[in-house]
Computed example of a mutant assay.
Amino acid sequence: MDNHSLVLCGFHFKPTDQELIHHFLRDFLTNRQLLLLQPYNTIIQECNLFGNRSEPSEIWEAYEGGAQLTDQSLYFFSELKKLNPMGSHIDRKIGSGGTWNIGKAVATWVNGTDGSPSPIGLKRTFCYKNEGSEDNGRWLLDEYSLFASHRKNYRDSRYDFDYVLCRLRKKDGSLNKRKCSTSEDQATSSKKKKCDDE
């Protein structure tokens, strides 16, 4: 399915973390009609990435045709599913026995009306783990959640809403690597790339 057929030629959807949370996710949660307008209705789809029986590569193929996007990402609004209706833990299962393993969570900030920075939500990064699948360690998921109100403790990782905005992407070098890198590996890789560029 070609979801970008209604998007202008040369258009690249590369929003910042702040834009994803402060504009797109907030708009989706407060007034879904705004995101039914073109071109956004062809760029950000609704798909439950938690509790889905499809592998990440199958979701990629279903929404993008796979081979056309080599260096881009897919964006989804996804409903969170709790392991226990009364609990706070989220069901991270996906595919045939796989799961999204969390790597790190970082607060996202915007400047408030008084000019001081204010946390608006969290970005959590996950890596797909499923030892029995070729997709194991080859997919990353950035999950964006919105805070309902200002939090003094922005490290508080609870969810205020039942929906999140997710960016699904292929892991760099995933064709050659089978494991998810650690944040230390990413920092080393980043430093190496910077040195290579100089």
Score class of each variant (00 low, 15 high):
residue 2 D to C: 09
residue 5 S to W: 02
residue 5 S to D: 08
residue 6 L to N: 08
residue 6 L to A: 08
residue 6 L to Q: 08
residue 8 L to R: 11
residue 9 C to H: 14
residue 9 C to Q: 15
residue 10 G to Y: 09
residue 11 F to C: 07
residue 13 F to T: 11
residue 13 F to H: 12
residue 13 F to Q: 07
residue 15 P to F: 11
residue 15 P to E: 13
residue 16 T to E: 14
residue 16 T to V: 04
residue 17 D to I: 01
residue 18 Q to Y: 02
residue 19 E to Y: 04
residue 20 L to H: 12
residue 20 L to I: 13
residue 21 I to P: 00
residue 21 I to H: 00
residue 24 F to L: 14
residue 25 L to I: 08
residue 28 F to L: 01
residue 29 L to P: 05
residue 32 R to S: 10
residue 32 R to V: 06
residue 33 Q to K: 11
residue 33 Q to L: 07
residue 33 Q to Y: 06
residue 35 L to A: 00
residue 35 L to S: 03
residue 39 P to H: 13
residue 40 Y to Q: 07
residue 40 Y to E: 05
residue 46 E to Y: 10
residue 46 E to P: 02
residue 46 E to K: 09
residue 47 C to Y: 10
residue 47 C to K: 12
residue 48 N to V: 06
residue 50 F to M: 10
residue 52 N to F: 04
residue 53 R to C: 05
residue 53 R to Y: 13
residue 55 E to G: 02
residue 55 E to W: 03
residue 56 P to R: 06
residue 58 E to T: 12
residue 58 E to Q: 15
residue 58 E to V: 08
residue 59 I to H: 00
residue 62 A to N: 14
residue 65 G to Q: 01
residue 65 G to F: 01
residue 66 G to M: 03
residue 66 G to H: 03
residue 69 L to N: 13
residue 70 T to E: 11
residue 70 T to K: 14
residue 72 Q to I: 00
residue 72 Q to T: 11
residue 74 L to M: 14
residue 76 F to A: 02
residue 76 F to Q: 11
residue 79 E to T: 14
residue 80 L to Q: 04
residue 82 K to F: 15
residue 84 N to D: 15
residue 86 M to S: 07
residue 91 D to E: 10
residue 92 R to E: 01
residue 98 G to D: 15
residue 101 N to D: 08
residue 101 N to F: 09
residue 103 G to A: 06
residue 103 G to K: 13
residue 103 G to D: 15
residue 104 K to C: 12
residue 104 K to T: 15
residue 107 A to F: 03
residue 107 A to V: 09
residue 113 T to I: 06
residue 113 T to P: 04
residue 115 G to Y: 03
residue 117 P to L: 07
residue 118 S to P: 00
residue 118 S to Q: 13
residue 119 P to F: 10
residue 120 I to H: 03
residue 122 L to T: 03
residue 122 L to P: 04
residue 123 K to P: 02
residue 127 C to G: 15
residue 129 K to H: 13
residue 130 N to W: 07
residue 131 E to G: 00
residue 133 S to I: 06
residue 136 N to I: 03
residue 137 G to F: 06
residue 138 R to M: 11
residue 139 W to L: 05
residue 140 L to N: 06
residue 140 L to H: 01
residue 141 L to N: 01
residue 144 Y to A: 01
residue 146 L to N: 05
residue 147 F to Q: 10
residue 147 F to K: 08
residue 147 F to E: 09
residue 148 A to D: 07
residue 149 S to N: 07
residue 150 H to Q: 02
residue 151 R to L: 09
residue 152 K to F: 09
residue 156 D to I: 02
residue 156 D to S: 00
residue 158 R to H: 14
residue 158 R to C: 08
residue 163 Y to H: 12
residue 163 Y to G: 05
residue 164 V to T: 14
residue 165 L to V: 12
residue 166 C to D: 06
residue 169 R to P: 01
residue 170 K to L: 14
residue 171 K to A: 07
residue 172 D to H: 11
residue 173 G to T: 12
residue 174 S to E: 08
residue 175 L to N: 13
residue 175 L to R: 15
residue 177 K to T: 08
residue 179 K to D: 05
residue 180 C to L: 13
residue 180 C to I: 06
residue 181 S to F: 10
residue 182 T to G: 14
residue 191 K to F: 06
residue 191 K to Y: 05
residue 192 K to P: 00
residue 192 K to E: 13
residue 196 D to M: 11
residue 196 D to K: 12
residue 196 D to L: 11
residue 197 D to Q: 07
residue 197 D to N: 08
residue 198 E to D: 05
